[in-house]
C-alpha cells in the first residue's frame, strides 16, 4: 500500500511514465488504483516522431503491470516521510 498511498499524493503533478515497450508518456497524474494502474491527463508521448501511435490521445489509462519507471517531480518527494513509511511497512504494517 505504500506506493499506492504515495502515488495518490502525486495527483495533479506532472510525471513521465516509462513503459516496458520503451514508450514514455508525460502527463498530469489524474488517479491511481491498488494495482498501480495510472491515469494521466494532458498526455504527450516523449519522442513523438518515433512514436506517433498516440497522436490523438490526450488522456490515458496505463496498466500498472506494463510500467517500468515513473519519473517523479523532485519537489514531490519527501524522503524523510518515505523512509519512515518504508520502515513501518517493513515491520509488517
Amino acid at each position: 500500500m505504500l506506493f499506492y498511498s504515495y502515488f495518490k499524493t502525486l495527483k495533479g503533478k506532472e510525471v513521465t511514465v516509462e513503459l516496458k515497450n520503451d514508450l514514455a508518456i508525460t502527463g498530469t497524474m489524474h488517479s491511481v488504483d491498488q494495482y498501480l494502474n495510472i491515469k494521466l491527463n494532458n498526455t504527450r508521448v516523449v519522442n513523438e516522431q518515433k512514436y506517433p501511435h498516440m497522436m490523438s490521445v490526450r488522456n490515458c489509462f496505463i496498466r500498472g503491470s506494463v510500467v517500468r519507471y515513473v519519473q517523479l517531480p523532485p519537489g514531490s518527494v519527501d524522503t524523510e516521510i518515505l523512509h519512515d513509511a518504508t520502515r513501518r511497512e517493513a515491520r509488517g504494517g
Binding site: L19, M55, V57, C60, R63
Partner: peptide, 19 residues
Amino acid sequence: RGDNIAVVGEVDDELDSQI
C-alpha cells in the same frame, strides 16, 4: 483480455480526424 492491454487512450475525435 486485460492481461494483454498496455495502454487505453481516450481518442480526441477532432484531433484524430485532422490526422
